[in-house]
Computed example of a mutant assay.
Amino acid sequence: MFEDKILTCRDCGAEFTFSASEQEFYAEKGFTNEPGRCPECRAARKAQNRNNGGYNSRPQREMFPATCANCGKETTVPFQPTGDRPVYCRECYQPSTRNSNW
């Protein structure tokens, strides 16, 4: 069904084999494009992305100042408090979530 193919790496220009088993794997996963990089360049790119935060890294979350409704401690929360609901610091919030029936 599948036969080995020789492809050229878009980064380094080296030829590499896209094996029949790799093609079968790609087909099973629904991938429609052949790999554009050789295994060495793919590994180097993955390592670089890991070191630089990668494609899936989240932007830094904006934090807002708040005062805990339970203990009065100044804290920060990842949403803009509106005053219509109580806001808790990490220490006061954790026990309340463990005891809830959610």
Results as ranks from 00 to 15, higher is better:
M1C: 12
D4F: 09
K5A: 05
I6T: 15
I6S: 09
L7W: 06
R10D: 05
R10H: 11
D11I: 14
D11R: 15
C12D: 04
C12G: 01
G13E: 02
A14C: 06
F16V: 00
T17A: 15
F18L: 10
F18M: 04
S19V: 02
S19E: 11
S19P: 05
S19H: 12
A20F: 02
A20T: 02
S21F: 11
E22M: 08
Q23E: 01
E24P: 01
F25K: 14
Y26R: 13
A27V: 12
F31Q: 07
T32K: 12
E34G: 07
P35M: 02
P35T: 00
R37C: 04
R37L: 14
C38V: 03
C38T: 00
P39N: 03
C41L: 04
R42Y: 06
R42A: 08
A43D: 04
R45D: 07
R45C: 06
R45E: 13
K46G: 10
A47Q: 10
A47T: 10
Q48R: 15
Q48E: 14
N49F: 13
R50T: 09
R50I: 08
N52S: 15
N52W: 05
N52K: 15
G53R: 11
G53L: 02
G54V: 00
G54S: 04
N56E: 09
N56D: 04
S57G: 15
S57Q: 15
R58I: 07
P59H: 11
Q60F: 08
R61A: 08
E62G: 03
E62T: 05
P65N: 04
A66M: 02
T67S: 06
T67Y: 06
C68M: 04
A69W: 07
N70W: 08
C71Y: 06
G72F: 08
K73Q: 14
E74A: 15
T76M: 02
V77L: 00
P78C: 03
P78L: 00
F79L: 01
Q80C: 03
P81F: 02
T82E: 10
G83Q: 04
R85M: 05
R85G: 01
P86E: 08
V87G: 00
Y88L: 09
Y88D: 03
E91C: 03
E91L: 11
C92Q: 05
Y93K: 10
Q94P: 02
P95D: 06
S96H: 06
T97D: 08
R98P: 02
N99H: 13
N99M: 07
S100D: 13
N101Q: 11
N101I: 09
W102V: 13
W102N: 14
W102T: 13
